[in-house]
Simulated scan of single mutants.
Amino acid sequence: MDTNRKIWNEGQQNLRRTLAAGDLTKAIEQFLTQHAMVHSKKVSRADVWSFEDELWQGLTEKAFRTIPPKGGHSIAWILFHIARIEDITMNMLVAGNPQIYIRDKWAKKLKSTIHHSANRMDNESVAQLSSQLELTALREYRAAVGRGTRDIVRKIRPHELNQKVDTARLQTVLDQGAVIPEAMEIVHYWGNRTIAGLLLMPPTRHNFLHLNEAFRVKKKV
């Protein structure tokens, strides 16, 4: 593991401890640093290493869309998926806001025919989505989601950290088809998390894990 990834992992452990201690001010500061490292510098304008910017260096459109041999995902699918998950969890579940994807009509801009999180897609559907997504729009959508997340986190109040996700908000996720029935385990997972727990996974660690996957794909293709 290189130095930047080691720093990110250590930062995530520190964020976990700070959230457990209930120090909201420090937790927000740590979260924003962790989040900045898994988004483009255009999102945070922070002076930290950006995993996403490193991924895009030298990435061709062909490599962006290609699913490697014996691989299940393309980089296009990965970036779409992590953007959708962050949008759904942070806007719908944490803030109770509309999805940016729906509010700003991103499906049309992205040339996407799906509105869900992209979980439980078969290989043919992944390949189709990967071939049709508009590359520049996907970068812009993910950046819009990232900026929205940072605004949401700055407004979290101390008493909200240990609150579980509102069941009515989970139902809205299902009603809007943001998660398909075949992927219900994700909704159950979110329903068992507190707001602090959500900060530790979708907008930080989930992004990090899938960006690592994207780098492995990039090397293969």
Score class of each variant (00 low, 15 high):
184 M>P: 00
14 N>I: 14
26 K>I: 08
218 K>V: 06
160 E>R: 04
104 D>P: 12
108 K>D: 14
30 Q>S: 10
76 A>T: 02
145 V>T: 09
76 A>Y: 00
38 V>E: 08
133 L>T: 02
46 A>W: 00
5 R>H: 12
185 E>S: 15
44 S>P: 04
56 W>G: 01
94 V>E: 03
10 E>F: 05
117 S>V: 03
177 G>Y: 06
85 I>H: 00
60 T>R: 05
1 M>A: 12
186 I>L: 15
60 T>H: 06
158 P>A: 13
55 L>P: 05
49 W>R: 02
140 E>G: 02
152 I>W: 05
142 R>C: 07
41 K>A: 11
39 H>L: 06
79 L>S: 02
99 Q>L: 12
40 S>W: 01
120 R>L: 11
116 H>C: 08
171 Q>R: 13
184 M>W: 06
32 L>I: 00
40 S>L: 08
119 N>H: 12
102 I>L: 11
50 S>P: 13
218 K>I: 06
3 T>C: 09
40 S>K: 04
205 R>E: 13
109 K>M: 11
191 G>M: 09
176 Q>L: 15
215 F>Q: 11
120 R>A: 15
158 P>E: 11
133 L>M: 07
199 L>G: 07
174 L>G: 08
158 P>N: 10
15 L>K: 05
99 Q>A: 10
140 E>P: 00
42 K>G: 10
96 G>Q: 05
209 L>N: 11
141 Y>A: 08
178 A>K: 01
148 G>C: 07
155 K>Y: 04
106 W>Q: 11
168 A>V: 06
202 P>S: 11
66 T>C: 10
27 A>K: 04
17 R>E: 15
105 K>Q: 15
72 G>L: 08
128 Q>H: 11
64 F>K: 03
54 E>F: 03
102 I>G: 02
111 K>Q: 14
172 T>S: 12
129 L>K: 02
50 S>A: 11
74 S>F: 02
79 L>T: 00
183 A>Y: 05
70 K>V: 13
174 L>D: 14
179 V>H: 04
90 M>T: 01
149 T>P: 01
43 V>H: 03
164 K>C: 08
183 A>T: 13
128 Q>E: 14
137 A>E: 12
204 T>R: 03
83 A>V: 00
49 W>E: 09
68 P>T: 04
56 W>D: 11
175 D>M: 02
18 T>S: 10
42 K>F: 12
124 E>S: 14
133 L>E: 07
24 L>H: 06
188 H>G: 12
57 Q>F: 02
44 S>G: 07
29 E>W: 02
105 K>E: 15
182 E>K: 12
